[in-house]
């Protein structure tokens, strides 16, 4: 068995294989449900209705997808430059922290306040990734290690602050921050629907990232650096500066996930703000093949699986861990499918 490159993969190949990956995921899910002693079709049906079956469910899925779009974009932008940012979780918490501090401050109010908090949060995330990228470009320190470890550092810092200076005096002893003032909360996207402007911002961010990757000089530079650093350097692409810019954008996007969760959904910062949105962002970006439009689709899919599985678990008694297994298998099948789009298998 060997792989032969496909020069120009056709439309059937490019769409059919990802579709086949989706089918394989469903089959795997069925087997998992079967092993849990439930009716596979009913279980999958419950996941689907749990994700999109009602207005409430669909809105919940969109809400859950919002931070995943941001972290997915953050990872997609960085991975294009082969800058392995595994630290979206840390950048998310940095953004959330700044949002909680500024949002509860009495002098930050109104629309300027909303914008100020957003910018400050993005800046905080960008700065969190700036350290690792400078260590990488100046000293050759592996960013996988530094960004990954910063996740724990940031979480511990947040924990310390929530138990200390940021602890809400009115919080009855719970480790949470004082609530974000009403005037600087992200408003509802449509009045009466439980969906905040964070989702809108995420879609706008995806559009801007697409513009940057496909049309802008920086996107071209990022791809050049990612695909062949030596050739990029030789041709005069300022590799170090491109990596720094990439890191600032990536860190900023991840931080907006924290901003949107605190200022949009929760209104306060707690230690369980993110159930691993930063890490799941890697899955989202990979499922999307690093394409910003794909990130939106993949984030909706991943959020749907999570939300749907929770609902299914309550109704059918199958553990909601099935969501993690489904996502893991979806990722593996999709990575395989992407490979098979570019290579055909030749038997003997």
């Amino acid at each position: 068995m060997r792989l032969e490159p496909v020069a120009n993969p056709g439309l059937l190949r490019r769409l059919g294989l990802p579709a086949a990956a989706l089918v394989a995921t469903v089959v795997t899910g069925s087997l998992l449900a079967l092993s849990a002693g439930a009716d596979p079709l009913a279980t999958l049906g419950l996941i689907v209705t749990g994700a999109v079956g009602s207005k409430f469910a669909a809105l919940e899925t969109l809400n859950r997808a919002t931070p995943l779009i941001f972290t997915g974009l953050a990872v997609a932008v960085a991975f294009r430059a082969k800058l392995w940012n595994i630290g979206a979780e840390a950048q998310l918490y940095a953004g959330a922290l700044v949002t909680a501090v500024l949002g509860a401050h009495p002098i930050v109010t109104g629309v300027p306040g909303v914008a100020l908090i957003g910018l400050a949060a993005a800046l905080a995330g960008a700065l969190v990734l700036l350290g690792p990228v400078l260590l990488k470009t100046r000293l050759g320190v592996d960013e996988v290690v530094t960004t990954l470890l910063l996740n724990f550092v940031l979480l511990l810092v947040v924990s310390m602050l929530l138990e200390g200076v940021l602890k809400d005096p009115m919080g009855m002893g719970w480790p949470k921050s004082a609530p974000v003032a009403k005037s600087v909360r992200l408003p509802r996207l449509i009045e009466g629907l439980r969906l905040h402007w964070g989702f809108g911002l995420a879609l706008i961010a995806a559009g801007l990232v697409w513009l940057m990757q496909a049309r802008m000089r920086l996107g071209y530079e990022i791809r050049a650096v990612g695909l062949n650093r030596a050739a990029a350097r030789f041709a005069g692409v300022p590799v170090g500066a491109v990596l720094v810019k990439t890191a600032l954008i990536s860190g900023g996007l991840a931080a907006l996930a924290g901003y949107s969760e605190v200022a949009g959904l929760k209104g306060t910062l707690t230690l369980d703000l993110s159930p691993g949105f930063g890490y799941t962002g890697v899955i989202v970006a990979m499922l999307a093949a690093l394409h910003p439009g794909g990130v939106v689709v993949a984030a909706l899919f991943v959020a749907g699986v999570f939300v749907g599985s929770d609902a299914m678990s309550r109704a059918a008694g199958v553990p909601s861990y099935i969501a993690d297994l489904l996502l893991a298998s979806a990722l593996l099948y999709m990575v395989l499918a992407m490979q098979l789009v570019r290579y055909r298998v030749v038997w003997r």
């Binding site: 049309r215 802008m216 000089r217 920086l218 071209y220 530079e221 791809r223 050049a224 695909l227 062949n228 050739a231 990029a232 041709a235 005069g236 692409v237």
Partner: peptide, 25 residues
């Protein structure tokens, strides 16, 4: 050259700053 770049993208590898208008290539 950058193997996975197109001929066009490779052809402008040294001159792309001159082909930029307001950040757009």
């Amino acid at each position: 050259t950058i193997a996975d770049f197109t001929l066009t993208e490779n052809a402008i590898l040294e001159t792309y700053p001159q082909l930029t208008r307001a950040g757009l290539l």
